[in-house]
Amino acid sequence: MASSTGTPATRRLGVVVIAMLATLAMCGLWFSSEDVVQGSTVRIMYVHVPSIWTAYIAFGVTALCSAVYLTGKNRSLAWDRVAGASGEIGVLFVAVSLVTGSMWGRLTWGTYWVWDARLTSTAFLFITYIGYLAVRRLGGTHRQRARRSSVLALLAVLEIPLVHFSVVVWRSLHQEATVANPNAKVELDGLMLFSLFLGLFAFTLLFVWLVLHRQRTLMLEDAFADRGLDAAIVARHKEAEASS
């Protein structure tokens, strides 16, 4: 049984991720030029776009692992733990993208929030996966947790497109965002494009790194809970023997 969640491979990965994030910070904050229209606010994009990208990957991984758990023959709890770890990190990154997005919106559109279809669906995505994490903490055995949360993760895959579709239709009957057109074509120069792609790559690796550690922590938590139960049973047996 591992006593820490790190291995030589994850440590190397961690060093690479930190180096890439540092490079991203330098490219995003200093080396890349200001946008003609948006000025320095464009720098928020180097965090905002990669974080929502990572969140989509994370929820995709959650759904995939949940499906594998439910359909797999041996029903390995490892799939459930990866799904859970990925869900947690996805929620974190959606939160980051909502916060950075509303900061950018305030600077560019003059308002923190517009009832745009994409924004509204993202908010629903956030709430849905907070619910998913709450269900994981309902208690019961590991198998109960795995089964409940896997079904819920697959239901979310059904729900999110439906919510998105209905919100798109809902918005189409209302006025568009008038402060600024978010769909305006933006020309990106070389370094800006590089920073954006570096961000996507760095955040994806960051996600892998975090999931590896988090699922190992979850494994240790499960093992701790099991051992706690075993130890309690042994103790009760000894008590019974001593009293008889």
Partner: peptide, 12 residues
């Protein structure tokens, strides 16, 4: 828990 799970789903 129920409102948290249910209300986002019934939004459509």
């Amino acid at each position: 828990l129920l409102p948290l799970l249910l209300l986002p789903v019934v939004a459509p």
